[in-house]
């Protein structure tokens, strides 16, 4: 709408140089330490996110009329990948997710670090939440965030409640700490409780 003002955050175009340097530096250091091909530190090329259509068969509830049809859960490889998770963390700030959800404690949007889910905790559910939006104030990011970044965000969102491997979850923050690092978050047992807000 307005010129001269960042209409869309950087990640879609490029990372801020300082950030890029630091992430690369950290990655290089980690590679040195771990040497051998460690999945945790794999960068983009071999780790493939699920396709967008993978989320299409998702259910928002376990409740089914009649016999249960088997699930085919979506595996988001980014959940075991430290680089993807750190990208997810950065994107969570830059797309202003943090402005509504903060570091998982919530504010305008619900808490994402607890065990309660309104629209499902599965990667495919969270993918749909981000892309479709949700009625009570969650904007739809469809067409604004590339799919692979949505999957990075999905992985990061799940790290907020300890759902991803703790060796891959971000262990530090570049900013003032207001909560424990994602890496040391207790693993919550997600419930589709949909407690009214």
């Amino acid at each position: 709408m307005r010129e001269g003002i960042l209409l869309f955050p950087r990640p879609a175009r490029r990372s801020p140089p300082a950030l890029r340097l630091r992430v690369v530096g950290m990655g290089a250091l980690a590679l040195l330490i771990f040497q051998a091909a460690c999945k945790r530190e794999e960068r983009g090329f071999r780790v493939q996110p699920p396709s967008a259509s993978a989320a299409e068969g998702s259910r928002m509830t376990d409740f089914q009329p009649g016999p249960r049809t088997p699930e085919s859960p979506v595996k988001n490889e980014y959940e075991d990948n430290a680089y993807a998770l750190s990208e997810g963390k950065r994107l969570f700030q830059e797309y202003n997710c943090s402005g509504c959800h903060f570091n998982g404690g919530g504010g305008i949007g619900p808490a994402l670090m607890d065990d309660e889910w309104l629209y499902g905790d599965k990667p495919e559910n969270i993918f749909e939440t981000i892309v479709e939006g949700r009625p009570n104030g969650m904007p739809s990011f469809r067409g604004k965030v590339p799919d692979y970044q949505v999957w990075q965000l999905v992985a990061y969102v799940r790290s907020l409640s300890g759902q991803v491997g703790s060796n891959a979850a971000p262990g530090r923050s570049d900013h003032m700490q207001t909560s424990s690092p994602e890496q040391s978050r207790p693993r919550e047992s997600p419930k589709l409780s949909g407690k009214p807000r």
Partner: peptide, 21 residues
Amino acid sequence: GAIVAGNLDPRDGGGALGFNN
């Protein structure tokens, strides 16, 4: 009072623009 009205998580002091803390 957002921490109560919005079921916010007190473990994130930065929640609700820092009022959670």
